[in-house]
């Protein structure tokens, strides 16, 4: 595991965007070779999308040969509702870049058969050759996608009932009325994300510090689903200073000492698979 500690949420966004750009460009995609990207929604990745749009407009990265799979979507929320993840992705990312709409996949929470929708999503990921890089955020309770505490760590894409904490946290997006928050979501499973070749988790803010501590300093636990990635061969945690507040000084110092090594990952000169074996 790598832990990259940066000054602020803005630098996390920028670092993450540079990493995604670097991976796409190193991959040398083309009509017969698509880079497959897993994507999150929410406030943490918003800055990353802004940066990626900026790099795209500057001609530094193209999404023409990129396929994307989003992590989750609410059930029974109209697609053009401003809180739907379809709406988020279209307006905050897809419409600004050159991705082919055929290659942008978002789970359909309004599908007539939700179980079928989930199993088709897994098949679609498999058909794309698996996910090369899954970018994720986490909730304060350590959930990744909508894999709430207690989710199986080998779970696959499925319908998930949201925890009370999540409903309360999300009520602010629905006029502070908890009854308007959708109670179910479609989400990729922990196992689905584990299968990707690489995972990058973005964590910012003091309110997520305890979750980061649980994710990396304690053992693997289905009550903190993000901790599962301790067992993934290539996991990157990108966090800001505030998110480290619950970590041991020793942990923070160790990873800060590695920062020069980590920054090489986003430099233009060295290919990532060269840097990968240097921790």
């Amino acid at each position: 595991m790598r832990l990259v500690i940066l000054e602020s949420a803005d630098s996390v966004a920028e670092w993450a965007a540079k990493y995604v750009m670097k991976r796409i460009n190193d991959f040398q995609c083309g009509p017969d070779k698509y880079f497959v990207l897993g994507l999150p929604t929410g406030s943490t990745p918003y800055g990353m999308y802004q940066k990626l749009i900026e790099y795209h407009k500057a001609g530094r990265v193209s999404f023409k040969y990129v396929k994307t799979f989003n992590m989750d979507e609410y059930v029974n929320l109209p697609r053009d509702h401003p809180e739907s993840y379809h709406y988020y992705m279209l307006h905050n990312f897809f419409k600004h870049i050159d991705i082919d709409p055929k290659n942008a996949h978002v789970l359909d929470g309004n599908a007539p058969d939700l179980v079928e929708e989930c199993s088709n999503y897994e098949k679609e990921i498999a058909r794309a050759g698996g996910i090369d890089l899954f970018v994720g955020g986490i909730g304060p309770d350590g959930h990744i996608a909508f894999n709430e505490p207690g989710s199986s760590l080998v779970s696959r894409t499925r319908v998930k009932t949201l925890a009370q904490d999540t409903l309360e946290a999300n009520a602010r997006f629905f006029g502070n009325d908890i009854n308007k928050v959708p109670h179910q979501a479609l989400t990729v499973g922990v196992g689905t994300v584990m299968d990707s070749k690489e995972v990058m988790i973005l964590i910012t803010g003091g309110h997520k510090a305890f979750a980061l501590y649980k994710a990396i300093e304690e053992g693997v636990s289905h009550m903190w689903t993000v901790s599962a990635f301790q067992q993934h061969p290539h996991t990157l945690f990108i966090c800001d200073e505030d998110a480290t507040l619950e970590l041991k000084v020793k942990t923070v110092k160790y990873f800060k000492a590695l920062s020069a090594v980590h920054h090489k990952l986003i430099e233009d000169t060295t290919p990532i698979n060269r840097s990968r074996s240097i921790h």
Binding site: L90, F94, K95, D100, P101
Partner: peptide
């Protein structure tokens, strides 16, 4: 027109 229908249903640019 609504761009969501175009992007997610028709899947065209």
């Amino acid at each position: 027109i609504n761009p969501e229908d175009v992007f997610f249903d028709e899947k065209i640019k």
